[in-house]
Simulated assay, not measured.
Amino acid sequence: MTAPSATYGEPTKRGVVGPIIAVGAVIFVIALAVVAFQYFQKINAVTVSATTAGFELVDDHTLRVNVDVTRDNPDVAAYCIITSMNYDKAEVGRREFVIEPGGAKTQRFPIDIPSRDVPVAGKVYGCSDKLPAHLAG
C-alpha cells in the first residue's frame, strides 16, 4: 500500500493571499465609513443656502438673477456665488455678492451678472457664511 502523501502529493501550506484580501477588505470598509461620516457632517454643516427664483435678460451681456437666500443665523454676514450660462450651458459670467448681517432669515436679492456672451440662464454656484478675505471688511 502506498502512503497518502505519495498518492495525493505533499500537503499544501495555507496561503497568505486569503488573509491579505480579508484585511484589505476590512481596511476598505473602515475607510469608506470614515469618508461617508465626513460627507454627512459636511452636508449637515450648511448654514446658508440659496435658490434661483427667476432671471431676466437685461441686455446681450447682462443677466439679472433673483436669488432667495436662507441663513440659519441672519446676524452673521454671508456671501453667495451665482453664474450665468449661454445656450451651450457654458459659464459666461460669475458674480459674488455679500449678504450683510441683519434682516429676515430668507431674503430675495436681484443680482446683475455681467457676461461675456449672451446669457440665457442663471444658477447658484454656492453660498457660505465664511467670507473670503477679498470680501470681508
Rank of each mutant, 00 (worst) to 15 (best):
V48S: 01
I81S: 14
K89T: 02
N86P: 06
T51E: 15
T51L: 07
G54Q: 04
N44E: 11
T7C: 00
A22E: 09
R95P: 00
R14I: 13
Q41S: 06
G15A: 13
M85D: 03
I81C: 03
K105R: 11
P74L: 09
I30W: 00
V46D: 13
C80D: 11
F40K: 06
G24S: 15
V69T: 08
V92D: 01
T47L: 05
D60A: 14
P101V: 09
I21T: 06
G103A: 08
I20P: 08
Y39S: 12
T47H: 15
I30V: 15
T12R: 15
A33I: 08
P101K: 00
L57A: 11
C80Y: 04
V65R: 08
S84T: 15
N44V: 15
E10H: 08
V67Y: 05
V34R: 07
D59E: 15
A22H: 03
A53K: 14
L63V: 06
Y79D: 03
G54V: 07
D72R: 10
Y39Q: 14
V67R: 13
F97N: 07
A25G: 02
V58A: 06
G15Y: 03
A45I: 06
G24E: 02
R71Q: 10
E96Y: 15
V58I: 13
I81L: 06
N66F: 02
V29I: 15
E96W: 14
L63F: 15
I30H: 00
G9M: 03
A77Q: 12
F97E: 12
N86Q: 03
L32F: 12
A33L: 11
K105F: 01
Y87P: 10
M85P: 04
A31E: 04
V35P: 00
A77T: 12
S49K: 12
V58P: 07
P11G: 00
N66E: 12
R71E: 08
A90W: 08
S84V: 11
T70W: 02
N66C: 03
V58R: 02
A45Q: 10
T52S: 15
Y8M: 10
S84A: 14
E10L: 11
A33P: 12
A78H: 00
V23Q: 06
Q38Y: 10
R64A: 07
V23D: 01
I43M: 06
D88Y: 04
R14E: 12
F37M: 10
N66W: 05
K89Q: 03
G103H: 06
K105T: 14
C80N: 10
K89A: 09
V34A: 09
S84E: 04
S49M: 05
V48C: 02
L32E: 13
E10F: 02
V35F: 03
D88E: 14
A104W: 07
Y79T: 05
V34H: 04
D59L: 05
N73R: 11
R71P: 00
G102N: 00
R71S: 05
V46Q: 06
V17Q: 07
A36V: 14
N66V: 13
A104T: 09
P19M: 07
T83Q: 14
E96C: 09
